[in-house]
Design a protein around this nucleic acid. Structure first.
Lengths: 130, 130
DNA sequence: ACTCTTGTTAGAAACATTCTCATATTGGAA
DNA sequence: TTCCAATATGAGAATGTTTCTAACAAGAGT
């Protein structure tokens, strides 16, 4: 019987959790890896991906497909949305609850379980310089 | 002076355009490549990507980051949103205009130029079988 | 101490996407 | 028509991200 497997705490995982805690930068795996490598040079990329996968499975992390080039991770799993700078790829959180009801005749029989709004634009820095 | 470069029509491009015209399946580059390869076995992957890039630059195509694994392309560039099946990755269009105004105090100085809503769920087939 | 489960690591592999560059085609101009 | 410069193509190499492999390590419980 499948059962939920134990999540063992290790120094590597503690470091990843510490890095993610309260982090609103929506880091990529690479970002996480390089930040933590300073402290733990032995840390492997596989461990980063394994841990992110485990956290995602426990619902403690969102995997965002917001960036053209790589996955981004968000430790805040309370319903919210995102604003993305098309120039520097900065991502910021939008905490606002939009009314997004999809009428049945438009939902085409889908069972809707989640929603996410992406806003595109330019962040203050890029708007100034570009 | 940069100027917009000419878009030369070639048999390969005609085939890609024909395949995309009215296509609501949100195909990946691979999908496009294999569909067209039946007719044009000499067609190269580079050509598919080059053409998609050119069409995107002309605003005739959207590149969608809604799939974990690969980019998906949408020839319909009229404002709309998407509903994604989390099981089979099917993507369907939602033509409904949501009111998505972001108050200035929440926009954090961003200049917002676009928006896109993703709904997640299960398509009728997957809801039935899963 | 022994065992079972789970986590770690380095490196290889898989995969999507982009790049290179020699060659071929296109569409307008002569 | 023929010619030409710009642009497009194709095969394969290169890149970057993510996943996989397999051997080893660490923990908890017996």
């Amino acid at each position: 019987m499948e059962g939920k497997t134990v999540f063992k705490m290790t120094p590597q995982r503690a470091a990843i959790l510490e890095y993610l805690d309260g982090n609103t930068s929506h880091p990529s795996a690479e970002d996480i890896y390089s930040a933590i490598q300073k402290k733990y040079p032995m840390m492997s990329f596989a461990t980063v991906y394994n841990t992110l996968e485990a956290l995602k499975a426990k619902g403690m992390l969102w995997e965002l497909n917001i960036d053209d080039q790589r996955k981004r991770y968000d430790p805040n799993t309370k319903l919210h949305h995102h604003l993305i700078c098309e120039k520097c790829r900065a991502v910021v959180d939008i905490f606002k609850d939009f009314d997004l009801t999809v009428p049945a005749d438009i939902a085409q029989g889908f069972m809707i379980t989640g929603k996410h709004v992406e806003f595109y634009g330019l962040c203050p820095d890029c708007a100034k310089n570009g």
